[in-house]
């Protein structure tokens, strides 16, 4: 019984972590991590912007070209 329960809990946890991964990817929350990883990969000593700075640049870029949003119908 406990064995079933533990595997059940483990499976639930795995499912939850997958959902969380999906939500974070979908909303673009991982954009910063991806960007830092990208910079580091090419140059481990690269200067990395802070998250605050990066997110600012990202929204401001949308300001400059608004066409990359959603569709209206």
């Amino acid at each position: 019984m406990t064995a079933v329960l533990t595997t059940g809990v483990a499976a639930g946890r795995k499912a939850a972590s997958r959902v969380w991964w999906y939500v974070r990817e979908l909303t673009g929350e991982t954009a910063y991590e991806r960007y830092v990883e990208h910079l580091r990969k090419h140059d481990p000593a690269a200067e990395v912007p802070s998250r605050r700075e990066f997110e600012r640049q990202r929204t401001d870029a949308r300001e400059a070209d608004p066409r990359e949003g959603n569709c209206c119908c």
Binding site: W20, V23, R24, T27, G28, E29, A31, R51, E55
Partner: peptide, 8 residues
């Protein structure tokens, strides 16, 4: 900044 999932 950037914590979209939680704020949503």
């Amino acid at each position: 900044p950037g914590r979209v999932a939680e704020v949503s």
